[in-house]
Design a protein around this nucleic acid. Sequence first.
DNA 1: AGAATTAACGAAACCGCCTTCGTAAGTTTG
DNA 2: CAAACTTACGAAGGCGGTTTCGTTAATTCT
Lengths: 334, 334
Amino acid sequence: MTTIYDIARKVGCASSTVSKALNNSKEVSDKRKAEILAVAKELGYVPNSSARRLATKNSWSIGILFSEDLNIGLEHHFFSGILQAFKTYVEDLGYEVTFVSKKVGTQELTYLEWCKYKDIDGILIVTVDVNDENLNELRQSGIPIVSVDSGLINVPTVISDNFQGTRMVLEYLMSKGAKRIAHIAGPLRSFSALERLEAFKEVLGKYNMDSSQVVEAYNYDFNSGKKALHELLKLNKTLPEAIYAASDDIALGVILALRDLGYKVPDDVSVVGFDNIELTRYTSPSLTTVAQDKVRIGREAAKHLIAQINKEVDTEQATIKRVPVELIIRESTK
Amino acid sequence: MTTIYDIARKVGCASSTVSKALNNSKEVSDKRKAEILAVAKELGYVPNSSARRLATKNSWSIGILFSEDLNIGLEHHFFSGILQAFKTYVEDLGYEVTFVSKKVGTQELTYLEWCKYKDIDGILIVTVDVNDENLNELRQSGIPIVSVDSGLINVPTVISDNFQGTRMVLEYLMSKGAKRIAHIAGPLRSFSALERLEAFKEVLGKYNMDSSQVVEAYNYDFNSGKKALHELLKLNKTLPEAIYAASDDIALGVILALRDLGYKVPDDVSVVGFDNIELTRYTSPSLTTVAQDKVRIGREAAKHLIAQINKEVDTEQATIKRVPVELIIRESTK
DNA sequence: AGAATTAACGAAACCGCCTTCGTAAGTTTG
DNA sequence: CAAACTTACGAAGGCGGTTTCGTTAATTCT
């Protein structure tokens, strides 16, 4: 590993001059600069990040907080999409992204301790156990934080506009003549599920319609959708005219369950999902759904975090940024 | 931020003693050790990773190489599953995981430069452009590397046993009486696609069966599956008895296309996929497929990388580790 | 009891880089 | 032309740890 001293020796100057040249300081003449840069290249010089960080107190690194405890980590399509967009954005600015861990070597650390240890510039919370004690510490530490889709109090959050999405779905269904609309909510420990449910009640309430036909799915997945549909039918013998599901996976489960029971979608009942996962374009019937803009969510989160890091925005202020969604009309509604 | 000097001052000893106590050296008496640890805790001491790394030359960090150029990054379910397992394993050992980037601050670096800069202990290659010039550099640098599913020459690789999987599929289909079996290959720039195709030909050849009914899908996705099926039918007017698709997404596309054409699965034709993605259990018909063990792949990759880091295994040797797969029989075959 | 170990600790150097500050030479100003 | 700035550079100290080595005090050995 070659260091600035090696360069200095070869050029015949002081290490401080090399450092300045490498950082393009104007305290070094152009001639010297060129000379130093040439030697640096010749020797294959790469700076040492630890030394630099130690000296500058500037880490250029961002931590990603994925709760390992919940099983809903990286594998979830929605979150990995967001992460991808986030990563791209901040790496373009020169930041490095690292997963926040609870260990270093063999030693156990809290999240905050780990962040201090790594001297992290900011953190993105993707999925997390809301009840995790360690989070409070983190929030109060003053380290810039942003979360996506989390519902954490006191943390700036970027999330799809669940109200807008729900409104579009319901108004569309009503415009098609639906009078009785049911909702398969997502698991209510999830913030988005709560918002969608709330919006469902609010919108239907505004139109003086029955908003009581609600079943909570245990999870956001296909199988929970199937189960939830059966519960819904137990609750109320007659089929609603439309079903608004809190996720595409749930919606697909609902459609399959309906089909198994001999009902036709959309002839007997319309079904709408939420997410716009790739697959929904291709299923039969293809699914009417609300498209979440993963790229934009990731990017907005990145922007806001960087703004905090650069002190362009107040860290204390827990804003919530709602990203517009889009209603995608396909074959599962009529 | 409290340092060992703060602790030393408060305890009334030298910083070197504090350092030793913190590292549980036996050169410090138990009494002192206890005293120092108490003060450290009281002051909320957390060591500084940069300083430690600088002094020890030991980084405890592992880089993940995701090519950003291909659009097949984190969002791909298969890879994110592997990454999850990998991450869990190495973090448990105390390693930190970071995405390998090509920039630091505003400066552009090659992969190798970046790894040197960060003084990374090892790297996991997940998806990568095989033709990327920068890879050669990396391979030759002596930094421990492992790849998953990559087909990179000279790099230890962990991959599903595509031969075993393909053999199981074909022998199962034959046992059910299928005589004419077609293959929808994955995109042949992918190593796994190549292996599955090769295995397809080898196995059918061994049984003296026609192995010429092959179409390459442009991509691993649903839509490519649909298109490929149409090409297959153009190639050969009569339907084969069974179709072996290189991925579940392709298989689902194939099934839908068949259905659109009025064919029934599995009555008119059996279809088999590869991956065992969550959804395949729930589609109708549910999909017969080959389950890839993402967790095991991730873990094996981690194990091998750690072994290299600990010099328990030769870095030079480019082994290929095949992880067993499992045939999951469902409704799409008869 | 005197010699030889060993235990416990501190001083100091070092890891690789950045930054402040002093200084000598060169340049501008009045 | 002397005074006042600038420019270009080097010496040295600091960032927060680790590690070597020397020293004193306490043990063990003969």
